[in-house]
């Protein structure tokens, strides 16, 4: 059989981890953008938009990400729609992230006291101005912990993209573990790398929270 040195294992895992990082960034940036648009649409109070977005959120929160990936790649192929694994993974992760993020942020906006809306309205601010200058800056502060918590989930969620052919960190770990028959060692390294990816995110969130809290008691 083939021999892997410890360095071989680590090197291959780190190379695969690139894709984990890229997928996570795309999911978060794309999901954040879509989620923000959905949030503002929902805040306008339009009943149709509210119901539609609510259903969208329920759909993506209520089904497993694995299934969403599967259906977006294999499922739509049954109807003749061709997608590349990249396209399918990015779209699935963006939709998934947007559903969770818009719901998280909706809760954060709801946590801003109604009096802020009333005071800014009484000062003749329009809806867009209320959002941009009064409500969203306050909601942002509240949003940092749950948003970062979710970002860490996204990083781990990219592991599921292996079902549509991505060789990211977890899949690479599986392949190497299966050939070296050293699952503890290999998966231990995988866990360490995930930790190394996620921990700085948590640290950054902490510093962000402290920065935004300047001026608050």
């Amino acid at each position: 059989m083939v021999e892997f040195t410890l360095w071989d294992i680590l090197r291959n895992l780190l190379l695969a981890a690139r894709w984990t990082v890229v997928l996570s960034l795309i999911a978060f940036a794309g999901g954040g953008a879509v989620g923000l648009v959905l949030l503002v649409l929902r805040l306008t109070g339009n009943r149709v938009a509210d119901a539609a977005i609510g259903a969208y959120v329920q759909l993506f929160q209520g089904t497993p990400l694995l299934m969403q990936l599967f259906l977006l790649y294999f499922g739509i192929a049954l109807f003749g729609v061709e997608t590349s694994p990249w396209m399918a993974a990015c779209v699935a992760l963006i939709l998934y992230a947007s559903a969770y993020l818009t719901e998280i942020w909706r809760g954060c906006v709801a946590a801003v006291p109604r009096g802020q809306w009333e005071a800014s309205a009484s000062l003749a601010l329009g809806f867009g101005q209320q959002l941009a200058h009064v409500v969203l800056p306050q909601a942002l502060r509240i949003a940092v912990p749950p948003t970062v918590g979710f970002l860490v989930q996204v990083v781990k969620g990219t592991a599921l993209a292996s079902v549509i052919g991505f060789v990211e960190l977890t899949k690479a770990g599986g392949m190497i573990a299966n050939v070296t028959y050293e699952p503890l060692l290999v998966y231990g390294c995988v866990a360490l790398i995930y930790f190394a990816l996620c921990f700085p995110i948590s640290l950054y969130a902490g510093s962000l929270e402290r920065k935004l809290h300047v001026g608050r008691r």
Binding site: M1, V2, E3, F4, T5, D8, N12, L15, A16, V167, A172, G174, M175, I176, A177, N178, V179
Partner: peptide
């Protein structure tokens, strides 16, 4: 397969063999 030796597995360069 890439995770099922000796039918399909990977070498140190992660290429299937």
């Amino acid at each position: 397969p890439t995770d099922y030796p000796p039918y399909g597995f990977v070498g140190p360069d992660l290429k299937p063999m």
